[in-house]
């Protein structure tokens, strides 16, 4: 039964992860709160998990022309060294302290996700970044009007 439940948790958080909506944070919470996994181990499991989950979603995003390649490459180049340093730093912290810091981070993110909209796109002169999107009909009405409230 636990196996089925774990699979479902993986499935649901995987869908969110593929969207880029923080499935990983939820998975870490599940592992630490319900499976009793220590914070650092849970973080490691989530990283491994993302390697399983993200490629398929990424292929679809590529096919749908949703990836800004230049931006991605730049961010990856900058992110690799900071990832390594941060991962080493986390290894030396007390697990309880790490979990508390993670909690503060979650509260900040949670309040932001719950109460604030992602700001509408700034006008970038001379660029038509999503013309391909609109023509392919990939956007829903709600996304075309980011100001429109869709509170639950």
């Amino acid at each position: 039964m636990t196996i089925v439940f774990d699979f479902i948790i993986g499935l649901v958080t995987g869908i969110l992860s593929g969207f880029g909506i923080g499935g990983g944070s939820l998975l870490i919470l599940y592992l630490t709160l319900f499976s009793g996994v220590p914070q650092y181990t849970a973080a490691g499991i989530n990283l491994l998990y993302f390697i399983f989950c993200a490629p398929a979603a990424l292929i679809s995003h590529f096919k749908n022309k949703l990836i800004d390649g230049k931006t991605a490459l730049c961010c990856i180049a900058a992110g690799v060294p900071s990832s390594v340093l941060a991962a080493i730093a986390a290894a030396y912290l007390d697990v309880g302290v790490l979990r508390r810091i993670f909690g503060v981070f979650l509260l900040y993110i949670g309040i932001r996700e719950l109460f604030f909209d992602i700001p509408s796109r700034r006008k970038a002169p001379g660029r038509r970044p999503d013309s391909d999107l609109v023509s392919s009909g990939a956007e829903s009405g709600a996304i075309k009007n980011p100001e429109k409230k869709t509170d639950i």
């Binding site: 490691g44 990283l47 390697i51 990856i76 992110g79 796109r121 970038a124």
Partner: peptide, 26 residues
């Protein structure tokens, strides 16, 4: 200045290699 859906999708493209690098350390 990325459009919303593009921003979500591109974030996945960035996080995947970063996760691979972090995973090695972990």
């Amino acid at each position: 200045g990325l459009e919303q859906k593009r921003a979500f999708a591109t974030s996945v493209a960035v996080i995947l290699p970063l996760s691979a690098v972090s995973l090695v350390v972990y």
